[in-house]
Structures are given as structure tokens and as C-alpha cells.
């Protein structure tokens, strides 16, 4: 029992929890304004899209691969959906999401074909698809930012689950869009933990040959993972458009490193086979916390990126040191 508690307290998830608590206490001490519900509201807004990305990235990494194409896919989904809806006078929320999801799914399928059938290394395949996609996006739709979204989409932005007005009369509202990542996390958790298919993803990431011998449909699993990732990226793109009330063909580009960092911070091993939904949520929370609130500690703006990098390195070296420790420790 003692052993169980000890292992629980030193899991990767718990380490991230300690860092989050430590950082929150520090910020709260230096700047009491942090200790407010508004912080939570702001934080969840920052986390919203990142969390969707992180969930699909986590699943891909668990399967032993990596996906760097999701920002490009999300951008295309966003700008294409916006453009098509405006041109054809469509003003329907489900249609927007379905369109985004389909665009994402088809590019995800392209990734899957390159990786599972042509057997390209995942990094190269998704890098190529990313570059192609973002190039095509700019070629087809131009660099113009759409700000006059269809009415219903625009209105969805204002629907909130919860509003909070502080003493100074400033209102903070928690958008209904937060339900999307919550739903995806729940779905991902159920899938990964309780279905044979989800366990198959871990099996493939742990030892692809053993997975084949055990009778898993390895190709099917890889196809699912990359198509799922693409679909979620498409949905994330549409979500981002509604959240920002604008469609920008390149705004998300470059966010992949931050997302991968958040995922790895959350205990997902970059070599595959290890990763949890809770850990991913915590990793995203930590990165969002740093990005949003470092300024409250008096850290100048351009030091923030530096500090984000620093935390990433410290956080991930804890996990990789742990992995090394496991590899070298006496086996039972």
C-alpha cells in the first residue's frame, strides 16, 4: 500500500500538479489579483483550442508517431469553412463544424496513407502535408482575414455558460465552446482506457510487431489515429474562428511546438506507448498558466517565451530522467 501511494505521488501527472500549484502560489503571492475567478475563466479560454490539438497529438504520440500538420489543417478548415459559408450564404452552426471536420478528416487520411501504407516516417509525412496544406490555403483563399462571419456563428461567440462580474464591474464570461474540448477529453478518456481499440493504440505504440502478433489491426489503428487527429484539427479550426470572430489563414501556424511541449509535459513519452488524458489536460493547463500569467510576476514580455522554453525543458527532463531511471533501475 505504501508502495502504491509512493508511486502515485511520483507519477508524471502529479509532478505537473506540483509545478502548477507551486507556480499558482508564487503568482498569487506576488500579485493578489491572480486569486480570482476571472483567472480561471481567462485560463480556460486560452486552453480551449490548445486542448483540442493536444488531445489528438497525444493520441498520435501514444501510437508511436507524431503529427505536426494540425495547425495547417486547422487553418485550412477555418478559412475554407468561412469562405464557403459566406459565398453560399450558408448560416448554420452544425454545417460549419461538419465542414471543418470533413476537411480535417480527408487531410488526416492523407497522413494515414503516407504513414501506414507508404511507411513514411510520421514526422516527414506530416511535415510535408503541413507545408502543402498551408501553401494551398494561401494559394486558394489568399492571405485575407475574414472578419464578417455569418450571423449565427458570430452569435455563438456570445453564448456563455457562466458569467462573472468583478468588483470593478468588468464581466468575464465562460464561452459555451469550452464544451467541445471537454467532450473530446471525455471521449478520448473512454476510448483510450476502456475500449480494446484504445488499448490497441497503446499496444501499437509499445511494440508494433507484438501488436501485429497479438492480432491487432495495426493499419486500421494508425488510420483511425491520424484521421481522428485531422478531424479534431478541423473542428479546432472552426472553434478558433468562432472564438476569435475571424478566420485567418495562418494564425495558428507555429503552434505545433507549444502543443507537443504541453503533451510531453503531461507525461506522454515522445517515443510512444505512454500518455494519459489527465496528464495532457494538466500539461496544457501549465503552459496556459505560464503564457497568461507570467506577466503578473513582473516578467517582461519578451522573457516569457524564454521562461516557457525553460519550463518545458525542466518539465520534460523530469519525465525523461524518470524514464531513464526506470530503464536503469533494478527490475523486479
Amino acid at each position: 500500500m505504501k508502495y502504491r501511494i509512493k508511486t502515485f505521488l511520483t507519477t508524471n501527472e502529479m509532478i505537473v500538479v506540483y509545478i502548477i500549484i507551486g507556480l499558482a502560489v508564487l503568482i498569487g503571492l506576488v500579485n493578489p489579483a491572480f486569486n480570482s475567478i476571472s483567472t480561471v475563466v481567462n485560463l480556460s479560454r486560452t486552453m480551449l483550442v490548445t486542448l483540442i490539438f493536444a488531445m489528438c497529438e497525444m493520441m498520435v504520440i501514444v501510437s508511436g508517431g507524431i503529427d505536426v500538420s494540425f495547425p495547417a489543417i486547422a487553418c485550412l478548415a477555418m478559412i475554407a469553412t468561412g469562405n464557403i459559408m459566406l459565398k453560399n450564404q450558408i448560416d448554420n452552426i452544425p454545417v460549419a463544424f461538419i465542414m471543418g471536420a470533413l476537411i480535417g478528416a480527408s487531410l488526416g487520411a492523407l497522413n494515414a496513407i503516407l504513414i501506414a501504407i507508404i511507411k513514411m516516417p510520421p514526422l516527414i509525412a506530416t511535415l510535408g502535408v503541413s507545408s502543402m496544406t498551408s501553401g494551398a490555403t494561401l494559394a486558394i483563399f489568399g492571405a485575407k482575414i475574414i472578419t464578417n462571419l455569418p450571423g449565427k456563428l458570430d452569435k455563438l461567440y456570445k453564448v456563455s455558460l457562466y458569467t462573472y462580474t468583478n468588483a470593478e464591474g468588468i464581466t468575464y464570461s465562460l464561452t459555451i465552446l469550452i464544451l467541445i474540448p471537454i467532450f473530446i477529453c471525455l471521449l478520448g478518456w473512454l476510448l483510450l482506457k476502456f475500449t480494446m481499440f484504445g488499448r490497441g493504440i497503446y499496444a501499437v505504440g509499445g511494440d508494433i510487431r507484438a501488436a501485429r502478433i497479438a492480432g491487432f489491426n495495426v493499419k486500421g489503428i494508425l488510420f483511425f489515429v491520424y484521421i481522428f487527429s485531422g478531424t479534431m484539427a478541423g473542428i479546432a479550426g472552426v472553434t478558433y474562428m468562432i472564438l476569435m470572430r475571424a478566420a485567418d489563414p495562418s494564425v495558428l501556424m507555429g503552434s505545433e511546438m507549444m502543443v507537443i511541449a504541453a503533451v510531453v509535459m503531461g507525461g506522454t513519452r515522445i517515443t510512444g506507448g505512454h500518455g494519459t488524458v489527465i496528464g495532457t489536460i494538466l500539461g496544457v493547463t501549465l503552459i496556459a498558466l505560464v503564457k497568461n500569467n507570467l506577466i503578473m510576476l513582473g516578467v517582461p514580455a519578451h522573457y516569457q517565451t524564454f521562461v516557457v522554453g525553460l519550463i518545458m525543458i525542466i518539465g520534460t527532463s523530469i519525465t525523461s530522467l524518470k524514464a531513464k531511471h526506470i530503464a536503469n533501475s533494478i527490475k523486479v
Partner: peptide, 30 residues
């Protein structure tokens, strides 16, 4: 049983033992 055992280092003992049977019986849930 091959020399490398074809087991999954990232999964628990119980899961490793039960997994092949679950796959071959076509179980959907873990």
C-alpha cells in the same frame, strides 16, 4: 514465445496477459 517475447513494455502485467485473448475473442471493451 519468441526470443523478444512480443510483449508490451508500456502496459501492465495483467493487460499483457489478457490482451491476446481479448483480441482473439473480438472483445470490444477492455
Amino acid at each position: 514465445i519468441y526470443q523478444d517475447f512480443a510483449i508490451f513494455p508500456n502496459l501492465t502485467v495483467a493487460e499483457n496477459i489478457a490482451m491476446n485473448r481479448a483480441v482473439s475473442t473480438g472483445a470490444k471493451m477492455m
